[in-house]
Nucleic acid binder design. Structure first.
Length: 303
DNA sequence: AAGGGAACCAACCGCGTACGA
DNA sequence: ATCGTACGCGGTTGGTTCCCT
């Protein structure tokens, strides 16, 4: 709806906060609470817009903010949650005590993103497919095809759910992925790290693939919830299902494979991917394990 | 020592959503 | 049902610091 003007451009300070401004903001909020951010600057005697005050408080002044370098555990958590949630920094931040979405976003963009993309052999690389790995490993190719089929199926279910169930918003809640994170799915993700530590430095790619496959399976088998990550916020009711389905893919690709379009060669249509999967020899798709779950999903028999 | 590029990060901007009138 | 307002979020910018030559 109507968009509120950001803030008055005249008579409002911008740029770095001074210690005096910080103190004034902290004092005021400690005394009165933040209340209405828009009116707060006037009451607190600050020449800032409410938005700026809110940001300064949330990202810097709020009690419990953890400063300093990220620990290895935090890094791993961010990487894994990012693989699960995409660029939903607030959701990721909610799982890291004392870290703000802004800090995590910055840390991802300046440290982790590069590292994950540049180090295919390193930990968690399975979460972001690498072109060489994809082309070299049959089981990984199948995994990617599986993932493609899974996403497509979930997209379909999401659309059906939207059409059939007006309460679909509860199923697309961002919290759903965090529930997954705290369930067996998250555990499977974390197992990757555990295995890695157990084998000290030489975790084989097949084991990584296995771990990733388990994650895929468990994400899928947990329910019929849609992939909110790739669901457009506004959908034209006249949009065809095909158009909708195709509109989901680029987002997934962006999130999973970066900007290298060469990585998408295996992201074919759901039907062909599915056929491919279901006609594979058992030993070839052994890592998938529970094909029944997928069929259940398609039948809508999963909870 | 200087200067130029890279890296970092606080802060800003604009959009989407929730909610009340 | 529509509109206006406030807030939250993710993307981006720009100032500062670091590092290399």
């Amino acid at each position: 709806m109507g968009k509120a003007p950001c803030c008055e451009k005249h008579g409002v300070r911008r740029g770095a906060w001074t210690p005096e401004e910080d103190q004034a903001l902290v004092d005021y909020i400690n005394k009165h609470g933040h209340g209405n951010w828009r009116t707060l600057p006037n009451h607190a005697g600050l020449l800032r817009c409410g938005k700026s005050c809110r940001l300064r408080w949330i990202n810097y002044l709020r009690p419990g903010i953890k400063r300093g370098p990220f620990t290895n555990e935090e890094e791993t958590t961010i990487i894994q949650l990012h693989a699960l949630l995409g660029n939903r920094w607030a959701a990721i931040a909610s799982q890291l005590q004392g870290r703000t979405d802004n800090e995590i976003k910055n840390y991802w963009n300046t440290h982790l993103k590069k590292r994950v993309l540049q180090s295919p052999g390193e930990k968690n690389s399975c979460l972001i497919p690498d072109k060489n790995v994809l082309s070299n490993s049959p089981s990984t190719r199948h995994m990617v095809q599986w993932e493609s089929a899974r996403v497509e199926a979930e997209t379909r279910l999401s659309m059906e759910s939207t059409l059939l169930n007006s309460d679909s918003t509860t199923k697309t809640s961002p919290d759903y992925f965090l529930q997954l994170w705290h369930s067996e799915v998250g555990e499977a993700f974390r197992k990757i790290k555990g295995k890695e530590e157990a084998s000290s430095s030489s975790l084989s790619s097949s084991k990584l693939e296995e771990s990733c496959s388990n994650v895929s399976l468990q994400v899928k088998s947990t329910g019929t919830q849609s992939l909110k990550v790739s669901t457009p916020k506004h959908e034209d009711v006249n949009t065809t299902q095909e158009q909708k389905a195709s509109s989901y893919r680029p987002k997934l690709e962006d999130d999973r494979a970066g900007s290298d379009s060469g990585n998408y060669e295996f992201l074919d249509t759901s039907d062909s991917a599915l056929k491919h999967l279901l006609h594979m020899p058992d030993d070839d798709i052994g890592f998938l394990g529970q094909t029944d779950n997928f069929l259940n999903l398609l039948d809508g028999r999963c909870d």
